[in-house]
């Protein structure tokens, strides 16, 4: 097991691998984090206007929710492949695909959060002379924050896992190491990259949980949890 032998013996667990290839592992992890972070941030920027549009009435809500749900059923490999003619082999392709997936959860959760804002709060804001924009930023969005952040957590964890599929166009972060490990039958590389990927998802989830607690201290007093059951019914694409 020890020292140099584990690389030669092709063991699953190999400290020597982690030591000698730490640079490769760091690069892949950084790419993974970069792709995930870009996807979630762009996803939020797109989801917010879509949720505001869907809120305008059933005529908008139907198409917006229907379309984002349909996107969710498209398998990731097909999604990335369909974007190939538009983006070529690039990181933009992977980010675009992941943004499209994140929209389903984000739009739904932002919408649920906005719809749960008490009517009295809106009326009070209007009574105090708030315009629509100020009402949205200072009253409605803060009150919708718990649901929004719950959506961000789910979308982030799913995105970390899905980023691996980006390996098909050589921008898959740790997925690239998994695929090259498969081609060369390099067990330590596949296991290390897979474990790092799960750890990354857990770390991102905990980080966002801390952010959620810091930004929305009032939710703990009421012991009200963000809509967990609602979101549990949506399943992640693979």
């Amino acid at each position: 097991m020890g020292g140099r032998n584990c690389l030669v013996a092709n063991d699953w667990v190999c400290a020597e691998y982690v030591r000698t290839r730490s640079e490769e592992l760091t690069d892949a992890t950084l790419q993974h984090v970069g792709i995930t972070a870009a996807s979630i941030l762009i996803g939020l920027a797109v989801a917010l206007p879509l949720a505001l549009l869907a809120r305008r009435g059933k005529a908008f809500a139907g198409p917006v929710l229907g379309l984002t749900t349909a996107l969710y059923s498209v398998p990731s490999l097909a999604m990335f492949s369909l974007l190939l003619p538009l983006f070529g082999l690039s990181a933009a392709l992977v980010v675009t695909g992941l943004v499209l997936y994140s929209l389903t959860v984000l739009v739904r959760n932002i919408l649920a959060g906005l719809e749960a804002v008490p009517e009295e709060a809106r009326e009070a804001a209007r009574g105090m002379g708030y315009g629509p924009v100020r009402q949205l930023w200072e009253v409605e969005l803060p009150l919708a924050l718990p649901a929004l952040l719950a959506g961000v957590r789910i979308a982030t964890v799913a995105t970390v896992a899905l980023t691996t599929v980006g390996a098909i166009v050589d921008y898959g972060g740790l997925g690239g190491l998994i695929m090259s490990g498969l081609r060369s039958d390099f067990k330590a590389q596949v296991l290390t990259a897979s474990v790092l990927c799960v750890l990354l998802a857990v770390a991102a989830d905990l980080l966002l949980l801390a952010l959620q607690r810091w930004l929305t201290p009032w939710t703990r007093i009421r012991s009200g949890r963000a809509p967990g059951v609602r979101t549990a019914k949506v399943v992640e694409p693979a």
Partner: peptide, 11 residues
Amino acid sequence: RAVPTLAVLVL
């Protein structure tokens, strides 16, 4: 949700 499908398939 957290476990990548691709990783499980390759493993």
